[in-house]
Design a protein around this nucleic acid. Structure first.
Lengths: 185, 185
DNA sequence: TGCATCATGTAATCAGTTACATGATTTT
DNA sequence: AAAATCATGTAACTGATTACATGATGCA
């Protein structure tokens, strides 16, 4: 399991509340690891009692008080240990691939709209990533030393973009294949 | 949930026992949807009582008897309905991406071996796909009509290959980035 | 007045994984 | 004699999703 570890990384990048973490899991970290607020609160509770994170009550004016979490020593150690553990490359889960194979036993043409919808979603995500890249990594850090945190965030973002581009190209391949079946019917 | 649907597709392609399905989920279908035999037996039981599949006892000589499952009318209908349902593009889960971002707070160089291990796994899978492609889709069906089942299986396989190629290229990018940090230290 | 945002949680359910269990045959 | 393959399952646990629940502030 890596939700704990994803939370540790996110809190090391910047301490925050459960609510804030949930928001980050909708963007940034969430592009390659999803989690809902319910999950996050539950895990934060466990991590607190395990001493992986520290909590601090932060009073706010004009909005509810929050609990700010930050990584404690044991949490940092746990992350370090996990980084060196071997984890298996995860297999993808594409229900769209199941649908494509299933289309042979139904109406292949009926799948076209669904495939186009997915293509649009991936195009949108790619555009979103590109905007983020221009904003956060547009100009190089002025002659300074290489910032590891920044460089590593950037390479992960490039991975997300490579994934979206690959998906768009593949969905075009799927659409061409479906059209071919329809023509040769 | 799509395990039911993945099983329906697999049984439409060819009826078989729970054991045989489990084996198929280690290859073919399993490249984009995983399931263990325990899961499969449980779901097959439910699908049988829901009337989605029919069971037939098959006696075998020299090996244990088996139950052969095949898709029944309601199962076919359920698949048809699902094909037209809109499903959200699933977000990827890459613990390696979490590790890469986490490396900023540990020793980035220590991650190199792990990234190389993943790269090797993806190279192996790609080679495996290529062998399968040459075997199953090597020569075109002799002038005959387009076989929808075959064409759709092929486009899904091409998707798997595109994914592996993308991952290999991205992991090279990660390795170059890690090396750059190490050099600029 | 109503909706959106900020903020934190509980409870129930469903899906998935790991461990355990059995037993025949075939191959090394 | 031991290990691998074929074949089917149960039980316990962990992880993830969905629904429910509360309450303040700010904006339209």
């Amino acid at each position: 399991m890596a939700l704990e570890h994803a939370i540790l990384v996110s809190l090391l990048e910047k301490p925050g509340s459960g609510y804030e973490l949930a928001r980050r899991f909708e963007r940034s970290i969430g592009y390659f690891w999803t989690a809902t607020h319910q999950q996050i609160y539950r895990v934060l509770k466990r991590m607190t009692s395990d001493g992986w994170v520290d909590v601090r009550d932060v009073q706010q004016y004009g909005r509810p008080d929050k609990k700010e979490y930050s990584v404690a020593g044991p949490g940092r150690d746990a992350l370090g240990a996990w980084l060196q553990e071997a984890t298996e490359p995860e297999s993808v889960r594409h229900d769209l691939a199941v649908k494509v194979r299933g289309a042979a036993f139904g109406d292949p043409a009926a799948l076209i709209t669904e495939v186009e919808r997915h293509r649009q979603a991936h195009t949108d995500r790619l555009a979103h990533y590109l905007t983020g890249e221009a904003r956060d990594f547009g100009e190089p850090t002025a002659g300074g030393p290489l910032d590891a945190e920044r460089e590593l965030q950037h390479v992960v973002l490039r991975g997300g973009m490579a994934y979206e581009r690959m998906m768009i190209a593949w969905l075009d391949d799927v659409l061409a294949t479906l059209a071919g079946l329809d023509a040769g019917r």
